[in-house]
Nucleic acid binder design. Structure first.
Length: 661
DNA sequence: CTAGGGTTAG
């Protein structure tokens, strides 16, 4: 038997090297020496039974000791109660004693009881023990299998940091799947939903869907598994599609369903749909996970008013509720409030975790709180016992970089304990662009491309930096390399929700039914803005390096089209909310800011990293020159995948969903 | 009455 709980990749057992033949056999012969349970009245047994059902662990263990000596056994259900009690208290030692007892003197516990023990070891993360029990049990049933599938598949996931492990973990899952089919357990709902869930945790959504589609009977949980699979793998469309199917089949959504539906809305920035789901969430208002998902939905849809309201209304808050708010505030540009929230959280006695600190540092980097950020960063390990990870370093690189302390940023990268990755170097590259540091930019870009040679954003960023510093030949060179490597840039795409429909706008795509009117108005708006001093920021013109030069490529950036469409189609006074697949460019940022003021409309644009709030009507005077340097963002950083943009596009005029249950 | 579903970052 190989070790699973201390496994190193090369020791990770594969099913075939283990006892494949024993797995394939389900034995049926009874155990030769199986004493029967005592029917005689016994004080210890009575005491034991009572203690188990009362969850009185010490008394139960004392009684168990006597039963052991007098060779008396209780019935399986009583033991399972005791094991539940051990699980709840994390009592590993006691659990092991129970295990020993039920196997002592040749007593052969029923399959039911062995399953309970296996599950106990799985939950204690003692996979060796779980595996040994499973391997040696004379008869396995569906429950034994379901338990082990979950155990194996989760085991491979514990060390995601080592990328190559991903293969072996997934490989094990595939082998288990194979064996399950051979043994004929694949018609079981439990086994299937475990498989679906495990495949989806490995990102193998299509396998999950296949397993699901092959099922003839489905219950609510298996629907939830598959909806959750897509929601968690950022395919909100498919999740909502499945949700509609589920409702057509007559199932009613429960907490888990709603959580996944909310997560789908979150991913797609569907605020209006999210609000409808909210109505159904009300009856589960005590459900913490669901409330957290609701909070996140409002944050990610850019409606901090709703998020704040829900947050103050929540009676129970955990680390995730607080972290969600901190990150939400930080991403939406409310950096001070995010930090206040963090202070409030710690003084209320909630311990921050890894992710909370990411949010705090993110807030600092956005607001330029260099000292504050550094002090949180330096104290996180001492005060909260959290070792800085890649994400924390990333925030610090951004913080120092934006503040112009590029050398310190580089030094930090060179000395950081986790290996810097693409994101780290790309962050540095972004900072180089802001401060026009050519040499460092070239260095950072090289590191990015070493790690990810297909990163179109980096080529574009690099060529833009060369253009900005008038190094035309170098810019040309980068374009050539990019072309040579056949790297294509993802087309910019923006989405806006109007009347429960999503409208998508893609650069150079004219398929929207109102595109002529939109373009006409866009030109008008640009004209009017120019009259009050708007000057398009041409440093972004060369983004579309491989296309033909249009007369004015900036004019047609997808978010501009979406904003204008929002002005046309949404009722006056309604906030225009847009989601983008790429980072917003400086020119569009300026355009949105000025237009929001001129038209007196609030505009919120969500890009893959941040949310940009533009207030309308506050300030009628336009401060064009000041704005040029304000908050310059860079397009071209590719976060979401290209396929998705195109799929979404094809669905742009399709109705979304109706709630009618 | 032992097994399967939902929340924060990247």
């Amino acid at each position: 038997m190989k070790s699973l709980s201390n496994y190193k990749p090369k020791f990770l057992p594969t099913i075939s090297t283990l006892t494949l033949h024993s797995l394939l056999h389900i034995h049926h012969q009874p155990h030769p020496n199986t004493p029967t349970q005592s029917n005689l009245p016994n004080t210890h047994l009575n005491e034991f039974t009572a203690a188990c059902y009362n969850r009185d662990l010490p008394t139960a263990m004392k009684a168990l000791n006597f039963m052991q000596k007098t060779q008396i056994w209780a019935d399986s259900v009583t033991y399972s109660e005791l094991i539940k009690c051990c699980l709840a208290r994390g009592a590993v030692r006691e659990g092991k004693l129970v295990h020993k007892h039920v196997f002592s003197s040749g007593y052969q516990p029923k399959t039911f009881l062995v399953n309970t023990l296996i599950n106990m070891y799985v939950k204690f993360n003692l996979l060796d023990d779980a595996w040994k029990l499973f391997d040696e049990m004379p008869e396995r049933n569906v429950v034994s299998w379901t338990t082990m599938i979950a155990a194996f598949a989760n085991a491979g996931m514990r060390d995601e940091a080592l990328g190559f492990l991903a293969c072996s973990g997934l490989g094990i899952l595939r082998q288990i799947h194979c064996i399950i089919t051979k043994v004929g357990l694949d018609s079981d709902v439990f086994v299937r939903s475990a498989l679906i869930d495990k495949y989806s945790k490995w990102g193998e959504v299509s396998n999950a869907l296949t397993v699901f589609n092959e099922m003839e009977t489905r219950d609510l949980i298996v629907w939830n598994s598959v909806i959750g699979a897509f929601a968690q793998n950022s395919d909100g469309d498919e999740a909502l599609e499945l949700f509609k199917r589920m409702k057509r089949c007559g199932f009613l959504a429960d907490q888990a369903t709603l959580t996944s539906v909310l997560r789908a809305c979150t991913g797609l920035a569907l605020l209006e749909l999210g609000r409808q789901v909210h109505v159904h969430v009300l009856k589960y208002h005590r459900d913490l996970i669901l409330s957290n998902a609701l909070l996140d939905m409002y944050c990610k849809c850019g409606s901090m008013e709703d998020a704040r309201f829900e947050f103050t209304r929540m009676v129970n808050k955990d680390v995730i509720s607080w972290s969600t708010m901190i990150i939400g505030l930080a991403q939406n540009g409310f950096s001070h409030e995010a930090i206040d929230m963090f202070e409030e959280m710690t003084s209320s006695g909630t311990r921050p975790n890894y992710i909370t600190i990411v949010g705090v540092l993110f807030a600092c980097s956005h607001a330029g709180f260099v000292d504050k950020g550094q002090s949180y960063f330096q104290s996180m390990e001492k005060v909260y016992g959290i070792k800085p990870g890649r994400e924390h370093y990333g925030c610090m690189v951004d913080l120092l970089g934006r503040a112009g302390k590029l050398n310190e940023a580089v030094e930090l990268i060179h000395n950081m304990e986790p290996e810097p990755d693409v994101v780290t170097w790309r962050t540095l590259l972004g900072a180089c662009r802001i401060h026009r540091n050519m040499d460092l930019a070239a260095y950072a870009a090289k590191r990015v491309l070493d790690l990810d040679p297909d990163d179109a954003g980096t080529y574009i960023l690099l060529s833009n930096i060369y253009v900005n510093t008038h190094r035309w030949e170098d810019a040309e060179q980068v374009r050539k390399i990019m072309k040579g490597n056949n790297v294509r840039k993802e087309p910019g795409c923006s989405w806006i929700e109007v009347d429960k429909q999503i409208h998508a706008f893609v650069l150079r795509d004219n398929s929207h039914p109102d595109i002529d009117e939109i373009t006409r108005r866009l030109i008008q708006y640009v004209q009017r803005l120019r009259e009050v001093g708007y000057v398009p920021d041409t440093s972004f013109v060369l983004h579309d390096v491989e296309g033909e030069q249009m007369e004015d490529p900036l004019l047609y950036h997808s978010e501009k089209l979406a904003i204008v469409y929002g002005l046309m189609a949404l009722t006056k006074g309604k906030t225009i909310r847009i989601r983008k697949n790429l980072r917003i460019c400086g020119d569009c940022h300026l355009f949105a800011k000025l237009l929001a003021q001129m038209e007196g409309r609030n505009i919120v644009i969500r890009d893959p990293i941040r949310y940009h709030h533009f207030q309308g009507g506050f300030n009628a005077s336009l401060l064009v020159n000041g704005l040029m340097v304000d908050h310059i963002e860079q397009t071209g950083v590719m976060i979401e995948n290209q396929q998705k943009a195109l799929t979404d596009l094809s669905k742009k005029v399709e109705g979304i969903i109706c709630f009618s249950d």
